[in-house]
């Protein structure tokens, strides 16, 4: 593994949080809590707009012309990668109407099983239109060799 890749960051992506996509995400995940798909229910619960659910910053980070260019640029083969771990740390809420900027940085890489599995650890930051950090992400990808 090329340790010189450590510290490599993805291009920041700036993406609007759209109510329509939040509703589509709620549908796709079988969400039953109306706070996540009904504007009136969200407002009644004290939200200024539909809230983005807990894993949504992962989705926002993929709102790119080529979402996997960063990984393929590091030499990873899409057919051979699996998601190993994901962690979110929440600093401030994300709502429909926000504009979020996200990028991630390769912070660790290591091999297991004699190189059959290679792990890549990325840390990301999501920042809103007021330059506030809203969510910190940590994402570990495993690449299957052989």
């Amino acid at each position: 593994m090329d340790q010189n890749l450590l510290g490599t960051s993805s291009e920041p992506v700036t993406v609007p949080v759209e109510a329509g996509q939040l509703k589509f995400f709620a549908k796709a995940t079988g969400e039953t809590n109306p706070v996540y798909f009904d504007d009136d229910a969200a407002m009644a619960a004290g939200h200024p707009a539909l809230p983005a659910p807990p894993t949504f910053c992962f989705t926002l980070n993929l709102a790119r012309k080529d979402p996997f260019a960063f990984y393929t640029g590091l030499g990873l083969d899409l057919g051979r990668i699996l998601h190993a771990e994901e962690e979110f740390e929440y600093v401030a809420p994300v709502y429909a109407g926000d504009t979020i900027t996200i990028f991630e940085t390769l912070v660790d890489m290591f091999a297991k099983k004699g190189g059959a599995l290679e792990f890549y650890v990325f840390e990301g930051i999501a920042i809103n239109q007021r330059d506030e950090i809203v969510v910190k992400l940590k994402n570990t990808i495993v690449h299957r060799n052989g």
Binding site: F25, T29, G30, E31, T32, N33, V35, Y36, A45, P51, P53, P54, T55, L82, H83, A84, E85, E86, E87, F88, E89, Y90, P93, K138
Partner: peptide, 24 residues
């Protein structure tokens, strides 16, 4: 992971969640 998030947000308001992580 989204399903696990729903279990949490069915139970507490999302603003109560500080950290949420999984191993696949």
């Amino acid at each position: 992971m989204a399903y696990l998030g729903q279990m949490l947000t069915n139970w507490v308001p999302q603003s109560a969640i500080r950290r949420f992580g999984v191993r696949f």
